[in-house]
Design a protein around this nucleic acid. Structure first.
Length: 822
RNA sequence: GCCCAGGUGGUGGAACUGGUAGACACAAGGGACUUAAAAUCCCUUGGGCAAUUUGUCCGUGCGGGUUCAAGUCCCGCCCUGGGCACCA
């Protein structure tokens, strides 16, 4: 048969159109099948797809196609996370309206996704910048307001001077902006917050459900971020008898308090008159958070001159102002026990504060004079009044009990996580549906008036102030309560709000309610979510929070949105993440033009397992192309021998054909396992490459025999469908070449016959004292006894063991014989 | 400092619950085809030593250990990547 060129451009276009025409990926509710929701994190429409996207979506697509072929009703949608700063920055810089910029980018990237042949149900496409989407942001906001889960407060917030907006704590980790890495400063502003702290415990408890399906690392990161700690709020007293509460996790050390430390922002300090202390407080307040909390920063403090009284022993101790105490955790002040806390110890040494031991080491009694560091291990209470002699572990509970009984304190749980600040002083986002009235205050926009539409006829003056603030037509409004003239909120929502529920919206993008109940109940939760690990405490935490809130509102049936999570590695080149600044970006379009989408997809799956970083290699891509071409050539060369559904007569096979058949069935078995259980696509491909190598090495003449034709037909019937999730276009074309009229996308995943996966002959190893001394081919059904006999009689083995005493013989069936001699 | 993950040829990466280390691919070398090149197909390829088939020793970050047998398990260290780090 004449060999055809592998014209991938034409082939790929042809099949993309056919899939479209046949509505191959359209999804419907179907109770006869098990549902499976596969989702990749939706992209921000930055303008062009990058390799990270291609990898992410290829992994999801492979899995979707595989599951579809295995009889699942697969839901695989895609959309656009299309609010956010880049659009606005582009507007300021190039004078393109954000709406146009965004819509154009979406158009372009959509074409790119289509060119890659991903099996999305495009009828479910959504974009967060559309009013019909974000009106539900607003609706949810109002609901949360009603439930007390959204509120406004004046607070110290993270301000990024480059982005000109406030950031949530999760977005300012390490004191820098998550987007542009500018150092974040603290500003006091009126801001809207979501009360994620109310769900801190739920978010932690939910982890139990996720342990099977989420990477341990992500759960750990979330656990650390939430930072639950149990302790006691103890009421110390000021000299004038006022309460001075502090939170501690170590009530067992309360008798060892020799000073207290308070945050510089604490209102309690307003009474300080000493100018030296006041100056110090001002200095600290003006330091950025990164300065104040960076690890190499020395702990600094000053004696405020005020004294605090310990309710346990009446000790009167100095109150210091310290740079390391945080206003927004606990009560903004701490008790300090230098003898048993390393930080307190260092601070006490620096400022000459006494050290008082209250937990002694039973094995080696402590001495204040010779201590060089705090004693932080367990021990026995001393100098602790009625608690002397109690082990400090027990004392923690006993002293907590005592506090509660005496009314000088109570048990409390504190969290590190703070409420989620969602106000952004930017234009290109979802308007916060609030109207400010002088009489009625902040009034939510009534449901019937939603959505508050973001005006698109805006004028960027080139400054970085949100144009909304200057737009009278937007700002001026009537108070929904009293009808008086009022002002609209001009801040927009954090774009992480948009992405906190989009996965559920895919189930019914056009619904009249937030979701179509039937559809959302049917599809949710997402069974397999795929994306980068960088969202571990951002998107993934927010989305869980939102899902819980919507669950409590009765809108969602599930409480956890993502049953399983795969965090895929980055695509790197020359040892670094692909980025414009490093100049190591590879453009997907170029590679598709040169090798075709199937090759790109194959390479993405072959070069590394999904969880690991993937090293881009031009040569490696060529290798993938070579494989696609090898398959192409082989099938075309032997297409004329294909007989559909021909039954192989096992007894009529030559050894060569038998081997091919065994390898075929083995391959199906291994590939199926690699995809379904291990999610290890690189080895699945390697295994198929081996099979193709076997086919090439076979004696071609055999394929012309009757038996040969049947074997080759069986190979095609199974190999080509098996390849189709990896290289869908080429597989369809080859399938059609064979004269088949059905499409592989509707075909079932090939099965295998267990009996046929067993090789007739296997190689076993003979060892002496664990060292390999000989190898032999034997029938695979050889008995243990025969193996041992062969090993003992093998001339080489005899030679080595000759004259030595055989201590023991270990036989592992089908593997090896080890003769142990002395 | 603490908690994870990892360290395997020149390279990316394989190796089931301990049982032939290096699958598959890239690169390199050789051969076939070709006027030539590309493409393609085939072969070799962890290192050392000796050699005719072949034999033999070393080898999965380092040092110990358990075991008939260790990349895999245990103990101690080194390095890389990631997370957490004044949260009281």
């Amino acid at each position: 048969m004449a060999e055809r060129d592998y014209n991938f451009t034409e082939i790929e276009r042809k099949w993309q159109k056919k899939w479209d025409d046949e509505k191959a990926y359209l999804t419907k509710k179907d109770d006869s099948k098990k549902k499976f929701y596969v989702l990749e994190m939706f992209p921000y429409p930055s303008g062009r797809l990058h390799m990270g996207h291609v990898r992410n979506y290829t992994i999801g697509d492979l899995y979707s196609r595989f599951l579809r072929m295995n009889g699942y009703n697969v839901f695989h949608p895609i959309g656009w996370d299309s609010f956010g700063l880049p659009a606005e920055n582009a507007a300021i810089k190039n004078n393109i309206p954000p709406l146009k910029w965004t819509a154009d980018n979406i158009d372009h990237m959509k074409q790119q996704l289509k060119r890659l042949g991903f099996s999305y149900d495009w009828t479910k496409e959504l974009a967060t910048y559309r009013p019909e989407y974000y009106r539900w942001n607003q609706w949810a906001f109002v609901k949360m307001l009603e439930k007390g889960l959204a509120y406004k407060k004046k607070a110290l917030v993270n301000w990024c001077g480059t982005c000109n907006t406030v950031l949530a704590n999760e977005q300012a980790e390490g004191g820098v902006c998550w987007r542009c890495e500018t150092e974040v400063v603290q500003k006091e502003l009126e801001q809207w917050f979501f009360k994620i702290t109310a769900y801190a415990d739920d978010l932690l408890k939910g982890h139990a459900e996720l342990e099977k399906g989420w990477p341990e690392q992500v759960l750990t990161m979330q656990r650390n971020w939430i930072g639950r700690s149990t302790g006691v709020m103890i009421n110390f007293k000021t000299e004038s008898g006022e309460d001075f509460p502090i939170f501690t996790t170590r009530p067992d050390t309360v008798y060892g308090v020799t000073f207290m430390v308070i945050a510089p922002e604490h209102p309690f300090l307003e009474r300080v008159k000493d100018p030296k202390v006041k100056a110090f407080i001002e200095k600290l307040k003006n330091q950025s958070m990164i300065d104040r909390t960076s690890d190499d920063k020395e702990k600094e403090g000053i004696d405020s001159g005020l004294k605090i009284i310990n309710p346990f022993n009446g000790d009167k101790v100095p109150l210091f102002v310290g740079n390391f105490v945080l206003m927004n955790y606990g009560s903004g002040a701490i008790m300090a026990v230098p003898a048993h806390d390393t930080r307190d110890f260092a601070f006490a040494k620096k400022y000459g504060i006494p050290v008082k031991i209250v937990i002694d080491n039973p094995k080696a009694p402590l001495d204040v004079k010779t201590m060089t560091d705090a004693y932080v291990d367990n021990g026995v209470c001393v100098n602790s009044g009625p608690f002397d002699g109690v082990s400090n572990r027990d004392a923690i509970e006993k002293i907590a009990d005592y506090c509660e009984k005496q009314g000088i304190g109570k048990r409390e749980i504190n969290y590190r996580i703070r409420d989620w600040g969602i106000s952004r002083q930017r234009y290109w986002g979802c308007p916060i549906p609030i109207i400010y009235c002088d009489k009625c205050g902040a009034v939510p926009v009534p449901e019937k008036d939603l959505p508050v539409v973001l005006p698109t006829d805006v004028d960027f003056k080139g400054d970085s102030v949100s144009p909304l603030t200057r737009m009278d037509s937007f700002v001026k409004a009537k108070c929904p309560k009293c009808g008086a003239d009022a002002r609209r909120e001009t801040d927009t929502m954090d774009t992480f709000v948009d992405s906190s529920w989009y996965f559920a919206k895919f189930t019914s993008p056009g619904s009249k309610e937030m979701f179509d109940k039937e559809m959302v109940d049917y599809w949710m939760p997402v069974d397999q979510y795929i994306g980068g690990i960088e969202h571990a405490v951002l998107h993934l935490l927010y989305a869980r929070f939102f899902t819980m809130v919507l669950n409590d509102l009765g809108i969602l049936k599930c409480r956890e949105p993502f049953t399983r999570l795969l965090t895929q590695g980055m695509v790197i080149k020359d040892g670094a993440k692909m980025s414009k600044s490093k100049g190591n970006v590879v453009d997907p379009d170029e590679i598709i033009a040169r090798y075709g989408a199937d090759t790109v997809r194959l390479f993405m799956l072959f070069a590394a397992p999904p969880q690991k970083d993937l090293d881009w290699s031009d040569k490696g891509v060529e290798g993938s192309y070579r494989f696609v071409s090898r398959v192409w050539r082989f099938v075309n060369r032997h297409a004329d021998k294909y007989v559909k559904n021909s039954a192989v007569d096992a007894s009529a096979l030559t050894d060569g054909l038998k081997k091919i058949r065994t390898e075929l069935h083995r391959t199906i078995k291994i590939v199926t396992g690699d995809i379904a259980e291990k999610m290890q696509y690189n080895t699945a491909i390697a295994r198929m490459m081996e099979l193709v190598n076997t086919l090439y090495q076979a004696d071609e003449k055999e394929f012309d025999t009757e038996a040969g034709k049947k074997v080759i037909s069986e190979v095609f019937d199974k190999l080509i469908p098996m390849l189709s999730p990896f290289m869908p276009h080429a597989a369809e074309e080859l399938w059609e070449t064979l004269g088949n009229t059905d499409m592989l996308v509707f075909r079932a995943w090939p099965g295998y016959i267990e009996e046929l996966t067993k090789r007739g002959e296997i190689e076993i190893v003979f060892q002496v004292n664990g060292k390999i001394r000989a190898k032999e081919m034997v029938p695979s059904d050889i008995t243990k006894e025969d193996m041992e006999k062969m090993a003992r009689e093998h001339p080489r083995m005899k030679e080595i063991t000759d004259g030595k005493q055989i201590v023991k013989v270990v036989v592992i069936p089908g593997k090896l014989v080890n003769i142990v001699v002395k």
